[in-house]
Write a protein that binds this DNA or RNA. Sequence first.
DNA 1: ATATATTATAACAGATTTGTGAAAATTAAA
DNA 2: TTTAATTTTCACAAATCTGTTATAATATAT
Lengths: 223, 223
Amino acid sequence: MKILICDDEALIRNVIKEYLLLENYEVLEAQNGLEAIDIVRDNDVDLVVMDIMMPKMDGYQAVREIKKIKDVPFIMLSARNEEFDKLIGFDIGIDDYVTKPFSPKELIARIKAVTKRTKGEDATYKSETLVLDDLAHEVTIDGEPVDLTPKEYDLLKYLMQNKNIALSRDTILSNIWGYDFYGDERTVDTHVKTLRNNLGKYRDVIKTVRGMGYKFDAKEKSK
Amino acid sequence: MKILICDDEALIRNVIKEYLLLENYEVLEAQNGLEAIDIVRDNDVDLVVMDIMMPKMDGYQAVREIKKIKDVPFIMLSARNEEFDKLIGFDIGIDDYVTKPFSPKELIARIKAVTKRTKGEDATYKSETLVLDDLAHEVTIDGEPVDLTPKEYDLLKYLMQNKNIALSRDTILSNIWGYDFYGDERTVDTHVKTLRNNLGKYRDVIKTVRGMGYKFDAKEKSK
DNA sequence: ATATATTATAACAGATTTGTGAAAATTAAA
DNA sequence: TTTAATTTTCACAAATCTGTTATAATATAT
């Protein structure tokens, strides 16, 4: 279980880190929002503990950016003053918050609560799903319709029909564009790009197979 | 859907309130058990979130009193210590409990679960009042008849018979105009246009599926 | 580490699709 | 027959989508 701690104060990071290590969590650290984004992108982070007041990019902005990349739970750290009210009004998925000064024990308790909840156990609420309803000609993520162009839709459908099978650009082109398409192979790349962007947190289901092409990865989690 | 939050800490009340408002619940607040009793007496409260440790009258007592007045579901808040054990033994109708520290998201999830359970599914649906009575051969919106031409009527009927299914212009033409219609496909567009205009506030139930055709969208919500 | 191959992204002109109004054609009614 | 209502076609504008190019980022091999 990997926890990312994002705070500009090394002292705070260290305290939290020590407690987490005692509980057998793996710990990653970031000094600011930008670093946090990179770390989330490159690692399978299970939860982020994030300070609000930080240089370069504040916590709110960082959460927004990270949510675009991955659906990972957040616990926010904030001072007990006006920051707090702002936090409340901040409607994107924050799982919990802790106001400074906080006791390490309390923070750990909350981290445990959140990880337990998101990791299944009593996961009666969230059903995370990417669904392509071909009859309705509609793609939904967690029930919310996703706006895809016709080509994006066709591409996703074709990739999903061939789950876990690596498909060359050539194969993709002849199946979706037709055998008589004589355009650039890079065209596929562009559509993969736009499709990924529209899939939001599911952007990673389309894996690049270097030297080969692309595939829809039905397995959850990886790396 | 009205939720009463009963807790002596304004901070906690505010946090819960903000999250609930985001989910379109109505929120009432009480600072202690006595206030809660009055509020339940005077309002159509659908659920009570109640802290156990409170001045004047504790949560247990308040639940007992309120149960005498009205059978309303409860979710209790309690600290993770000995209070918790007491709660377990407390057998009058408590629907759920959440131990502090709790994450707002978790509490909301439980509130949703309880309200869904007690109210049944349809509570959130608004009454769909677009009706096509095929026997009467009449379409009404909120009981008021809508004036449709024969083709418009046929088109609407066909789309409604195929709710949530994307239909190509070609399919529509051969089903309504007949397989032997050799006219312009765009004829469909024109009839969709006039039909939409006649459907007034329901014009959006007919969705354009770009590159494909049209569909009748039975789902609520759209933004 | 550097060079090379491969993939990702942004930008944009051109192509396609759809919405719409209006005219023409057809059908039904008076 | 004349008139009105309905249906169909058409054309243009607006909206949206597509493929290409150029450039950046990344992975792999030397």
